[in-house]
Amino acid sequence: MKSFVGLQVVLLVIFLTGCKCKEIEKVDYTDAKSSLLAQMDPLIYDPEVRPHLISGTPEVVAVGIEIDTFSEISVAKMDFTAEIYLRQYWMDPRLADNGSFGLPISLTASETVSSIWKPDLYFLNEKSAKLHSVPSPNILLRIWPTGQILYSQRLSLTIGCQFDFFNFPMDVQICKLEMQSYAYSTDDLHFRWHEPPIDFRKSDLNFPEFELIDIEVDKSIEEHQATGNYSRLIVAVRIKRDSRPYIINIYVPSTVVVILSFMSMWIDPRAVPARVTIGIITVLTTMTQSVNIQQELPKVSYVKAVDVWLAACLVFVVGAMLQYALVNVLLQREADRNKKEPHHAVNRVNPEALSMTDTPAPLVSYWSPGKVDMFGRVVFFVGFAVFNLFYWLFYVLL
């Protein structure tokens, strides 16, 4: 019984000691935070002055990016939208020894965060940017007793990207995110990558129309500008367009239209309405496809792969229509010759009956309408097959 009571007393002492330690930790953290805020007093801390200005050494800021999503890639506007967590690390000796007993102090209030010096990093090719503020501003300032600082922000960025549409729609694009200081040259500030520089999960990054190949970072480079040399960081996002929707919606229908124009060569040449209708419909369909594609893409000064395809399809369908024009001319000549043959037959019986105004019968042309149609069937089909071979070899495999 006595041992049981003794055990209860020991457990009670341990419980009270633990509670007291937690209260002490809470008091210590509160005191440390108050001490840190006192160090950030505007009377003794100037947020406009960088930490190592007096010593003359440049600030070294490590940058890390966590990519959350790519929400939109606009081909017409030539930009993409991404949600990222931007994290910057640097040392500020003025905020060291803040009495935080070895633990970092986190600050989230906008007024407090704005009261210390921060790097003026900006995105060179940014079109628009937004700091998330629901339910509160998504910012974090974490300060260690050593003076190390972490500044984290959650941003939505719309970044311009110079797309190259030469191989469209089998193209691979490289979109860059470029960052540098706006006011501080390399004499005052250097950017470098934190480890790891880029954090993302490839399976979570779903692109409309595109497939992510890789995300790479370039080493910190110095960029010369009129006001000095500036430290710059670059993130390169390599994406490949999913060409399957374009094959289904453009290449397959246009191929069917071209083959349909060739099939008219199997129709009786005397069926003029049928062959002319097929020719006109195939030409108009190909031209409509070309116009619709041009409306979806920005105007560029070079020829795209899809332009070559549609132009070739237009050449083939127009060629099929011109082929029937030749067949129709031969039909007319054949009809005229058949009308004159009885008259010339009589004249051959009585040669003296020929007058000076009579003309001899035209020679029978080797190229009859039937032979022209047979020749066209072979030439057009073989020509279209050869074009396909070279087209796909050039734009896909090479």
Rank of each mutant, 00 (worst) to 15 (best):
A271Y: 11
R275V: 14
K33E: 13
K304N: 03
L103F: 15
V75N: 05
P169G: 03
E72F: 08
P58A: 10
N167P: 02
L326W: 10
F101R: 15
R377V: 14
D28G: 02
Q88T: 14
R275S: 07
Y246F: 13
V276H: 02
D120P: 06
Y45W: 06
L177T: 09
L157Y: 03
E25N: 11
Q8W: 12
V378G: 04
L124G: 01
P104S: 13
R201D: 08
G319V: 08
P208N: 13
L233C: 02
G99F: 06
R201V: 08
Y230A: 03
F70E: 00
A274N: 09
S128H: 15
F384H: 00
L107M: 11
D79M: 05
A335S: 11
D79P: 04
V386H: 00
L331M: 12
F387C: 12
L330T: 09
I67W: 01
A96Y: 14
V113S: 01
L284G: 03
L95H: 01
P104F: 14
K127V: 15
L389F: 15
V315M: 10
F207K: 02
Q173N: 02
S220E: 02
M356W: 11
H52C: 07
V13N: 00
R192G: 03
I250H: 08
E195V: 06
K371N: 05
P47H: 03
V317D: 02
P273D: 02
L37S: 04
F380V: 09
T282R: 05
A312E: 00
V237M: 14
E352I: 14
V5T: 12
P197K: 00
E178H: 01
E66D: 06
Q332C: 06
S34H: 08
A274T: 13
W90L: 13
A311H: 03
A385Y: 12
I143L: 05
E223D: 07
C313T: 05
R94E: 13
I84N: 05
E352S: 15
V382I: 15
L53M: 07
Y122L: 12
W144M: 08
S106G: 12
P269A: 10
R154N: 06
Y45V: 08
N167K: 15
R348C: 05
A345Q: 04
V283M: 09
V329A: 09
P208K: 14
L297N: 00
I84S: 06
N350M: 14
I278G: 00
T186V: 13
A38D: 04
T69Y: 04
P104Y: 13
L398N: 04
